[in-house]
Amino acid sequence: MARLTGGDPSLLRRINSAVVLHALRTAAPAAAPTLTDLVKVTGLSRPTVEGVVEGLIDAGLVVEAAAEEGEARRQGRPARRFRFRREAGHLLGIEIGPHRIAVLMADLGGRVMGSAAQEIAATASADERLDGVLATVSDLLRRSGVPRGQLRAVGVATPGIVEADGTVRLGTALPGWTGLPLGERLRRSFRCPVLVENDANAAAVAEHWKGAATASDDVVFVLAGLSPGAGSLIGGRLHRGYGGAAGEIGALHLLGREATPEQVLSTTGEPLHPLDEAQVARVFALARSGDERAEAAVERFMRRLVHDVAALVLALDPELVVVGGWAAGLSGVLGPLRAELARYCLRPPQVVQSLLGEAAVATGALRLALDHVEEQLFAVESTVTARR
């Protein structure tokens, strides 16, 4: 922690509060720390720790814990113990996709407390889709007994290129999505910070948090579908690019060198219509049954996917590639991808399948909300830097 000079008692109180709160939050659940423990961990004086703890109790973020069993008999009056109140607020992670809306709710420690999902038509308008989001959230809060005012932050993940303020600059996967001020619309309903991110970016964050990429900080997550997207972590930090469009590998065919997805997956010579997951699953099923045209279409699909991923891998040199999305469940994706990357890359990355599956996007959205709350409560260094 940076050393402060000069008089700024309010800033110093915030720093001390963040230090003590972080120590309480990271303490083992079975061993709530005493004031003496907190003094040792934080390096602060006992009067400072006592004052900070009382302030955190008044703020509802800390509560006195029960004495450990047998402690009173051994020592007379037991030392006061304290714990972080994870239940002092709640977070939401929301996935808004072409076919479904999914919501996860967690406490301030990131522990998932409930979930809800509903199917939605691919043709639904933006207003219908947002109504579906609010209805799904309301149902989850009602079933969980959590008041809306308990929400501290909401993370939202959606297809498209998302700007920093939550506006969808380009979103062709959902009707009426391009230009939608998604963050602004949702903030009216939640009255708490709403953070909006691209779905592949959110999934990359999720896999790094509690999925297949927990041991790696240089990761590419591929959301494999009709038009694949990707999210990247460099040094453990999400790489969004200058305008939020990093990882849009599904647009590579627009360079004019390759066919459109409708042509790639066609088994008749005519563009595949409608181009949806059910149709594509049918093409893969035909290929498995030995249909030669379907086999050729699947081969073209695989070649397109692995070439798109190889372009991003060559640019970023990640340690790990995680493949998710609905196409990751189709047989034969990982093998060709590994072989193609071995051909093109000087140091081919490890290639694995997502461990979170269809929960990856909503889980990543939840992590975004948790990151925001942690920054508000625990980011001592950023606080110091901002006030210099």
Rank of each mutant, 00 (worst) to 15 (best):
E248H: 12
G247N: 13
G256P: 08
G269V: 09
E258N: 13
E262K: 04
P271K: 05
I249C: 01
S266H: 13
L255N: 10
H273W: 12
L255Q: 12
S266Y: 13
D276Y: 09
S266I: 02
Q263L: 10
P274W: 13
P261S: 04
I249F: 00
Q263T: 07
V264T: 15
G269D: 03
H273V: 11
G247F: 00
S266Q: 09
T268G: 00
H273C: 06
L272C: 03
D276Q: 11
L272K: 05
T267G: 06
L254Y: 07
T268C: 00
R257Y: 15
E270L: 11
L265F: 15
T260E: 12
I249A: 03
E248M: 07
E270D: 06
I249Y: 02
L252Q: 13
G247I: 01
H273L: 08
V264G: 01
E248D: 08
G269K: 15
G250H: 09
A259S: 14
L254D: 00
L275Q: 07
G269Y: 08
S266A: 15
T267C: 12
E262C: 01
E248K: 05
P274I: 05
R257C: 09
V264E: 06
L252H: 02
G269P: 11
E270G: 00
V264F: 01
P274H: 14
I249V: 05
T268L: 08
P261C: 09
H253N: 07
L265I: 12
H253F: 15
P261D: 10
P271I: 05
T260D: 06
L252E: 06
G247L: 03
H253Y: 15
V264K: 06
L255A: 15
R257K: 06
E248I: 00
A251C: 11
P274F: 01
L265K: 12
H273R: 14
T267L: 13
H273M: 14
L272P: 00
L275D: 03
V264W: 00
G247P: 05
